[in-house]
């Protein structure tokens, strides 16, 4: 299998006076095309730091990160900005969308940034939003959309420019159960359908049901990588039970 993303012994260490905190500790893994990965773990386990490292938003203190064969560690700030623009798609937990652009304009924004905006790609953006069930909301501003609607627009924006890697930070955090399932299911199916690599950070174990692999982090370390469908389903069941108990 082609390695789309590979990390080699990456660590991120924060120094605060005499004390040091290892937010990510000596982690190595790789993913291939068409995989949808869930990155799970308790608060403070290093999930978001790992996501920031994979996105090129942070430089690792040690180790290397290869995406499409390019080592992010060796890129300058402006090269990393360009890399993110071309190779990475993002959805965030909150403030995802530009508030003064309509749903369609938010998706088109990635095309404009990559100088790919033309009638064909604009039509593709529209089709993608329609496919995500937003036909009635193409010209609505983010404030006029529900939380689920906003996440679906963000997913469309993350995919429209054909990125290598799609990263989602807690995409279901602000959604009710039904919408959370809808959003992750759509996200997962588009990743598989478009043969991209998707990584979703989530604290909600129920959502791992749609993942091909689950990476469990604790105290900055990868404690387990789960690839077995049975084990993943088992984890999702635990998540559902925890949710019911709460």
């Amino acid at each position: 299998m082609d390695k789309v993303l590979e990390t080699i012994a990456i660590s991120k260490i924060y120094k605060n006076g005499a004390s040091t905190v290892k937010a990510v500790d000596n982690s190595s893994f790789w993913f291939s095309k068409g995989e949808f990965i869930a990155l799970v773990g308790p608060s403070g386990s290093g999930k978001t730091t790992m996501l920031a490292l994979l996105a090129g938003l942070l430089r690792p203190t040690e180790g290397n990160i290869f995406i499409d064969g390019i080592d992010l560690v060796n890129l300058s700030d402006s090269e990393r900005t360009l890399f993110r623009r071309q190779k990475i798609g993002f959805t965030f937990q909150a403030n995802n969308l530009v508030p003064y652009l309509t749903a369609l304009e938010n998706v088109e924004l990635m095309l404009r940034l990559n100088l790919q905006f033309n009638p064909q790609t604009a039509a593709h953006a529209k089709d993608l939003l329609i496919r995500l069930g937003l036909e009635e909301h193409l010209y609505h501003f983010p404030s006029q959309l529900s939380g689920g609607g906003q996440q679906r627009v963000a997913i469309a924006r993350a995919l429209i420019h054909n990125p290598t890697l799609v990263l989602a930070d807690e995409p279901t955090a602000a959604l009710d159960t039904e919408r959370a399932y809808q959003v992750v299911e759509i996200f997962s199916s588009l990743i598989h359908e478009q043969n991209r690599t998707g990584i979703m950070v989530t604290h909600d174990l129920r959502m791992v049901e749609f993942a091909d692999r689950v990476i469990n982090m604790r105290d900055g370390k990868i404690v387990r990588i789960i690839s077995s469908r049975d084990e993943i389903n088992q984890l999702a069941r635990i998540g559902r039970q925890e949710n019911e108990n709460n």
Partner: peptide, 14 residues
């Protein structure tokens, strides 16, 4: 600030 952060994260140059 959060909105500018998102724009920068998705690759908008400084």
């Amino acid at each position: 600030v959060p909105q500018i952060g998102v724009l920068k994260a998705i690759g908008t140059p400084n």
